[in-house]
Simulated assay, not measured.
Amino acid sequence: MRRISDYFKLGEVFRYFLRVFRKPDPNRPTSVNLRMMHGINRISIIMFTICLIVMIFRACTR
C-alpha cells in the first residue's frame, strides 16, 4: 500500500517543466512533431502561469 506522501511527489512534473524550456540535447534525435509538441507545451505552461497570477491578484484585491 502506498503512503499519502507518494501521491504528492511532484518532482517529475517540475523537471519536465524545466526541461521544456531548455535547448534540445544535440545527441537525441528530433523531429518536427516533437518540436511542435514542446512548443505547444511551452505556450500552455506560460498561459497557465499568467492565468494563475491573474486569479491570485484578483483574489487578493477583493
Rank of each mutant, 00 (worst) to 15 (best):
M1S: 15
R3K: 13
R3N: 14
R3W: 13
I4Y: 15
S5C: 07
S5E: 14
D6R: 08
D6Y: 08
Y7W: 13
Y7T: 09
F8A: 05
F8L: 08
F8M: 06
K9L: 10
L10M: 12
L10C: 09
G11H: 06
G11D: 07
E12L: 09
E12N: 09
E12S: 11
F14M: 08
F14Y: 09
F14E: 05
F14V: 15
R15D: 04
Y16C: 14
Y16L: 12
F17M: 07
L18A: 09
V20G: 03
V20F: 01
V20W: 00
F21V: 01
R22Y: 08
R22V: 05
R22A: 05
K23D: 04
K23T: 04
P26W: 01
P26M: 03
P26Q: 03
N27C: 06
R28Q: 10
R28D: 04
R28H: 06
R28I: 08
P29W: 13
V32M: 09
V32P: 04
V32Q: 10
N33S: 13
N33W: 13
N33D: 15
L34Y: 00
L34G: 00
M36R: 11
M36C: 09
M36I: 07
M37Q: 13
M37L: 14
H38K: 01
H38Q: 06
G39V: 09
I40L: 14
I40G: 00
I40R: 06
N41R: 10
R42W: 05
R42E: 02
I43E: 06
S44E: 14
S44M: 13
S44Y: 10
I45E: 08
I45Y: 09
I45Q: 05
I46D: 05
M47F: 12
F48S: 06
F48C: 05
I50P: 00
I50L: 06
C51S: 13
I53N: 03
V54A: 13
V54P: 02
V54T: 11
V54E: 13
M55L: 10
I56H: 07
I56F: 07
F57I: 15
R58G: 01
R58P: 03
A59V: 11
A59P: 00
A59D: 02
A59E: 07
C60Q: 12
T61F: 11
T61I: 01
R62T: 00
R62Y: 02
R62W: 03
